[in-house]
């Protein structure tokens, strides 16, 4: 069965997306294994950029907080879905904080990928990424192109690929369609 990690960066669920998400996971549970993390209820520090995870305790962040359980889940999964509201035209600080903390998963050594410097892999395989932007205002979805461009790059630096960006005003229909084919 495919393993899917859901990193939920919704600060306040004004669209009812989370209820739809629970129902979607229930429907797909016989085919997929889900692990879901609700960031607003977790104790996660901001990355301070010390690079200790590269040069002091290789592969391990020096902070002993709830991010450890997310990183363990991410590295064993086939797909990581990042869920975020659109905040000031970008992802929520919660999602950004969590994805900043992904760096222990890669190695500090540099290699050339597509003619650019990127970090080497630390692990043998990495999950694909998917992005869900949740917003009750459909106008905000015009921002998805900029956000997608940045997260395509973030996926490349995680030696992975952004498979999809889904814009939702509370429904999980688009997301379910994407992961149904996965």
């Amino acid at each position: 069965m495919k393993r899917i990690t859901i990193v939920n960066g919704i600060q306040e669920d004004v669209t009812g997306f989370e209820k739809s998400l629970d129902r979607m996971m229930e429907r797909l549970r016989n085919r997929m294994v889900f692990e879901c993390f609700r960031l607003r209820e977790m104790n996660i520090s901001y990355c301070c950029g010390c690079l200790g995870c590269w040069v002091k305790s290789p592969g391990k962040c020096l902070y002993k907080d709830d991010m450890v359980s997310i990183l363990k889940s991410v590295i064993r999964s086939d797909l990581v879905i990042l869920i975020s509201p659109v905040v000031m035209g970008f992802v929520s600080p919660l999602i950004k904080k969590a994805t900043d903390r992904f760096i222990p998963l890669i190695h500090p050594y540099i290699t050339i990928v597509r003619g650019e410097c990127h970090h080497k892999k630390r692990y043998g395989r990495y999950p694909y990424l998917g992005l869900v932007l949740v917003d009750k205002e459909s106008d905000s979805m015009n921002d998805s192109e900029l956000i997608t461009a940045v997260y395509k790059r973030a996926a490349l630096n995680l030696r992975s690929r952004l498979l999809f960006t889904v814009c939702s005003n509370g429904s999980t229909e688009g997301l379910e369609h994407e992961i149904d084919d996965f």
């Binding site: 990355c47 950029g49 600080p93 919660l94 950004k96 994805t99 900043d100 940045v150 973030a154 995680l158």
Partner: peptide, 16 residues
């Protein structure tokens, strides 16, 4: 500084 291709989370919290 560039953190995973964008502003650090702490800067995004300020932008909000």
């Amino acid at each position: 500084p560039l953190y995973t291709d964008a502003m650090p989370g702490i800067v995004m919290a300020f932008i909000e």
